[in-house]
Amino acid sequence: MKLKIGQLNELQVVRKTDIAYLLKSSDGEEVFLHQNESDHRKLEPGQFVDAFLYFDAKGRLAATLHEPYVTAGNPGVLKVVAVKPGLGVFLDLGISKDVLLSKDDLPVDESLWPQVDDQVYVDLRVKARLTARPIPYNEIRLITGNLNVGDEVSGFVQVIGNIGYFILTDEFNLVLVKKSNVRKAYRLGEILKVKITYETPSGYEGSLIDFKEVVRVDDSKLIMDVLEKEGGRMPYDATTDSETIQKVFGLSRKSFKRALGLLYKERKVKFEGNETILVKSNE
């Protein structure tokens, strides 16, 4: 049997050295199992074990009897344990060596990279070294029929796409959240709650927008923040075009007008020409 890196291999114990066991396959290929990787088991020559094969920190082929959370061809959800700018993020594989999710498989914008304790659904990629590969949405088996419109479920961002986000729920439902149903940018692996808004034969759609009244208050705060940064006067009002509003505030024109109306109703702003002006407390 040829050694399969990134997978469990049935190997036979040949002998024990001062620091390791020598294992071999049925084809006679040999690999070392450090005693620290024996999972506290005492092994005897001739005994067969199921060992996971990986590359150690020095790039050498090594074995462990600790069972990994994911093996090549058997994807699973791994947690982020470290972020290395310019390199990628490291995921807890369940063995002594973490696995790298390379920058090549992450967004160009590092602010969208997963952070510590975020989660990513990955498989293992075996080349010159063992790395993680995020599973794209079209490779995830769709599960439908177990959620209802209006349900709020937990999940994490698995894919950041051109049309929006694909959220993988705790029950492995895949939920598409279009950009029109978000209020901010979310990072890959970010854990959140998504509200189910629609069900189709091909999957679910959802929203990351809070209830309307809460959103209106939050949007008003965004406008106030910009006003204060602009010194109490800004060249934007209800007539400003959608593209400018989206660029400056990250809001749709409808949401901007609604929040602006709330501020005007509360007498926090007034309008002159095409400008919005902060109302001073003594006015």
Rank of each mutant, 00 (worst) to 15 (best):
V214W: 00
K247M: 12
V83D: 12
G203P: 12
Y54A: 05
Y137T: 12
L124S: 03
N162I: 00
G28P: 07
N274Y: 06
K4Q: 11
D18T: 01
K212L: 15
D56H: 05
V194K: 02
T244H: 14
T64W: 06
Y204T: 12
V214S: 10
D219P: 07
N274C: 01
T71W: 03
D105G: 01
Q35V: 04
K268W: 07
D151W: 05
L33P: 06
E139G: 00
K4C: 01
E44P: 02
G46H: 08
T64C: 10
A72L: 13
I5S: 03
D237H: 09
L8T: 10
K84V: 14
Q115K: 04
R60E: 15
K268V: 12
A51T: 13
I167T: 03
D104E: 09
G86R: 00
G59R: 06
A20L: 10
L176T: 03
R253V: 11
P75L: 02
E205P: 03
G232S: 09
M224C: 08
F32L: 13
I160P: 04
V89W: 01
A57F: 05
Q246R: 13
A20G: 09
K58Y: 14
F249L: 06
E67I: 15
G155T: 07
K221I: 14
A62K: 07
P235D: 00
E110G: 03
I160N: 07
T240D: 04
E190I: 04
V120N: 04
L263Q: 04
S38C: 08
V217G: 07
E10Y: 15
T169M: 02
V77E: 14
F249C: 07
D123W: 13
R60D: 15
E272H: 12
E283I: 07
Y198K: 08
K179P: 00
